[in-house]
């Protein structure tokens, strides 16, 4: 099971003013596991995710996906990298082109990678929508006609429709109400298990990270503060910063015992 899918080695991103947004980060993600990256604003967690996703070029270091160098891949290798790795973004309001129907949005990745013909794509889109719990009629709707939670379901559908090996999520539930967040997180976990996905989940919310992650990386000022299993990091943090972060979380179940019917998430 120690089959490494994503390897990040000595990755640094420096922006103009000489401050490193991400500073010499090394970590790996094993097949089938979810790595949660948690940190406050300016910790570099989203920048790191975007470098893995090939959206921001690292200043130094290498990132590999299944042994292929993400930033030096060409042609067929690059296509394979793109196909293997999909993303779910934070903002349900701006992560879809407002002028495209959900059907068009979901067909785009298939068209770009030349998968299937018109009929088989439509069939796949229908199945995927059903899997994320949306009615088939959603294909003809537009993003603004959907609620925030429905849009994040579409975002998950877009990410998994090509059966990627890896899904990277950047604060996918931060803009949602807690009740909706709970449903979307549940869906995320189910789909991840079903498809055996490897995933990286970035959030500022420690409790959400605890709920979805197998292992957790804590970042601060662009550096990796600590990394370990979720149990270990949250129950016996090694660094003072992690401790301070945990203590700062206003968690209702610190003072009051959690209700019995609450899932523990592990």
């Amino acid at each position: 099971m120690t089959d490494t899918v994503i390897q990040v080695a000595g990755v640094t991103k420096s922006f103009v003013r000489g401050v490193n947004a991400v500073d010499d980060v090394t970590l790996s993600v094993a097949r089938g596991e979810t790595l949660g990256i948690v940190g406050e604003s300016g910790s570099g967690k989203s920048t790191l995710l975007r470098m893995i996703l090939r959206l921001i070029r690292p200043s130094a270091g290498t990132i590999t996906l299944d042994g292929r160098d993400v930033w030096n891949a060409h042609d067929r290798d690059l296509k394979a990298v793109r196909r293997q790795m999909q993303a779910v973004f934070q903002d349900p309001a701006s992560s879809f082109n407002p002028r495209q129907s959900i059907g068009t949005i979901l067909a785009a990745p298939l068209e770009v990678h030349g998968i299937g013909d018109r009929a088989s794509r439509a069939k796949l889109i229908g199945e995927t929508l059903e899997r994320v719990g949306l009615p088939a009629a959603t294909v003809s709707r537009f993003p603004h006609q959907l609620s925030g939670g429905q849009r994040q379901r579409v975002a998950i559908a877009r990410a998994v429709i090509m059966r990627p090996a890896v899904v990277l999520a950047d604060e996918p539930t931060s803009a949602l109400d807690v009740s909706v967040q709970a449903q979307v997180l549940k869906l995320f976990r189910e789909i991840k298990d079903e498809l055996g996905l490897t995933s990286v989940f970035v959030s500022h919310n420690l409790a959400v990270i605890r709920e979805v992650s197998d292992r957790v990386a804590v970042m601060r000022h662009g550096r990796l503060v600590e990394i370990g299993t979720a149990e270990r990091v949250f129950n016996s943090p090694e660094s003072d910063y992690t401790r301070a972060l945990i203590d700062a979380v206003p968690d209702p179940f610190r003072r009051f015992r959690a209700p019995v019917e609450l899932e523990s998430g592990s």
Binding site: R82, S95, V112
Partner: peptide, 10 residues
């Protein structure tokens, strides 16, 4: 973000 999304699907 839909531009990032478009880039990330290749």
């Amino acid at each position: 973000q839909y531009i990032e999304a478009a880039r990330s699907i290749g």
